Simulated assay, not measured.
Amino acid sequence: MGLEKLGTWPVDGAEARAKADLVKIDKSNRLNIVWGHDHPVLLEFAVSNDYMHVGELVIPVGGVGPRATEPESHKGDAVFYVLQGPATFYIAATDDTYHVRDGEAFFLPADVAYQCLNYGSTPVRMVFTIAPGL
Rank of each mutant, 00 (worst) to 15 (best):
residue 20 A to K: 14
residue 21 D to K: 04
residue 21 D to Y: 07
residue 21 D to P: 00
residue 22 L to E: 07
residue 24 K to W: 08
residue 26 D to C: 02
residue 27 K to T: 03
residue 27 K to P: 03
residue 27 K to N: 08
residue 30 R to S: 03
residue 30 R to P: 04
residue 31 L to Q: 14
residue 32 N to A: 03
residue 34 V to H: 13
residue 35 W to D: 09
residue 35 W to H: 12
residue 35 W to E: 10
residue 35 W to Q: 13
residue 37 H to F: 08
residue 38 D to K: 13
residue 39 H to G: 05
residue 41 V to L: 04
residue 42 L to C: 05
residue 42 L to N: 12
residue 43 L to Y: 14
residue 44 E to V: 01
residue 45 F to K: 02
residue 46 A to R: 02
residue 47 V to Q: 00
residue 47 V to L: 02
residue 48 S to H: 11
residue 49 N to Y: 08
residue 50 D to W: 06
residue 51 Y to T: 09
residue 51 Y to E: 12
residue 52 M to Y: 09
residue 53 H to V: 03
residue 53 H to K: 02
residue 53 H to S: 07
residue 53 H to R: 08
residue 54 V to C: 10
residue 54 V to N: 07
residue 55 G to R: 09
residue 56 E to G: 00
residue 57 L to Q: 11
residue 57 L to A: 06
residue 57 L to C: 11
residue 59 I to P: 15
residue 59 I to G: 12
residue 59 I to S: 11
residue 59 I to A: 15
residue 62 G to Q: 08
residue 64 V to G: 05
residue 65 G to W: 05
residue 66 P to F: 11
residue 66 P to V: 11
residue 66 P to C: 11
residue 67 R to V: 08
residue 67 R to Q: 13
residue 68 A to G: 06
residue 68 A to K: 14
residue 69 T to R: 14
residue 70 E to K: 07
residue 70 E to N: 11
